[in-house]
């Protein structure tokens, strides 16, 4: 009886610790979001969302930064999604396991570990200077695209690997070619997982500052971009500028929180859309 009591106690403690960890994490998130919300909501109004900054960025809005971040994120995902998914298909469906594939995987994993400021410098060297794209949406999107590539490759590969081998066998046994098997059976089955990975990538691309600092972001511009070769303002960089580089750091505090709130809402909004798309696909598939 004694040992049974002891086992029960340990059981209770183990679950207590696990539950506590979860609560702490949720609490941290809630505090962070709450802090930004409380400090930032006063800055949010129609002018803030639709007007450019004014009076040395102490007044006005952040419209150019919203537009800029939207374009940069869209550009990054447009570049990274097809490249990433294609690489994942190659690694998981075509390439035979061996030294070469192991080497490629190590490369991708290392890419994921490279600090984002290094991506920024890489983008500056390759896209801005060498290829002559200048500081532009194109350079920034390419840099962000490369930054999130490992995330998308990793998630896509996992999703492809999770597709039951029996689907592939069934398709091949029915006279399907390898490509037909991938395109018609494996990819549709893996799509929800691939989208989940891409959501993470999008969130990361929208929030990064260092990679766009040298490649795309303008300190201040009221002009909206008219081509991919234009420089843009961006939300994360705007926060950085207001909080560290301006001459009116304290005066603009509420604008900083407001911008942060908009950025978080932007990322959560994109995630929400992706989750809706994913749920739709899942529902269609089991049907």
């Amino acid at each position: 009886m004694e040992s049974r009591k002891k086992r029960k106690l340990i059981e209770g403690m183990a679950f207590g610790v696990i539950r506590l960890s979860t609560v702490i994490i949720c609490l941290a998130l809630a505090i962070m979001l709450g802090f930004i919300l409380v400090n930032g909501y006063k800055a949010i109004n129609w002018t803030f969302l639709t007007e450019p900054p004014m009076d040395a960025m102490t007044k006005g809005g952040i419209f150019p930064a919203i537009v800029g971040t939207f374009y940069l994120t869209l550009g990054a995902i447009t570049i990274a999604f097809p490249l990433g998914v294609a690489s994942a298909i190659y690694l998981s469906e075509y390439a035979r396991e061996g030294k070469m594939v192991r080497l490629i995987r190590i490369g991708i994993n290392n890419l994921a570990g490279v600090p984002s400021v290094v991506f920024g410098l890489f983008g500056l060297g390759l896209f801005v200077v060498f290829l002559g794209f200048g500081s532009s949406i194109l350079s920034g999107s390419l840099t962000l695209g490369f930054l999130i590539l490992p995330v998308i490759i990793g998630a896509s590969e996992e999703a492809l690997k999770a597709v039951p081998q029996t689907y592939r066998e069934a398709s091949l046994a029915l006279g399907g070619t390898r490509w037909q098997t991938i395109y018609r059976v494996v990819l549709p089955a893996a799509l929800p997982g691939i989208l989940t990975g891409s959501i993470l990538g999008i969130g990361r691309a929208a929030g990064e500052t260092a990679p766009i600092m040298f490649t795309a972001a303008a300190f201040y511009t009221t002009k909206l971009p008219s081509s991919v070769f234009d420089e843009v303002m961006a939300l994360p960089y705007h926060i950085y500028v207001l909080a560290t580089a301006g001459t009116h750091i304290d005066e603009t505090r509420h604008l900083q929180y407001g911008t942060a709130l908009v950025l978080i809402a932007f990322v959560l909004g994109i995630n929400l859309v992706a989750i809706i798309i994913r749920t739709r696909i899942r529902r269609k598939q089991t049907y």
Binding site: P164, T166, Y167, E169, A170, S171, L172, A173, L174, G175, V185, A189, Q285, T286
Partner: peptide, 15 residues
């Protein structure tokens, strides 16, 4: 494979 069809151990319909 078109001329020699196959049915597997576990039923494996596509979704």
């Amino acid at each position: 494979r078109k001329r020699v069809g196959m049915v597997f151990q576990k039923p494996n319909p596509f979704p």
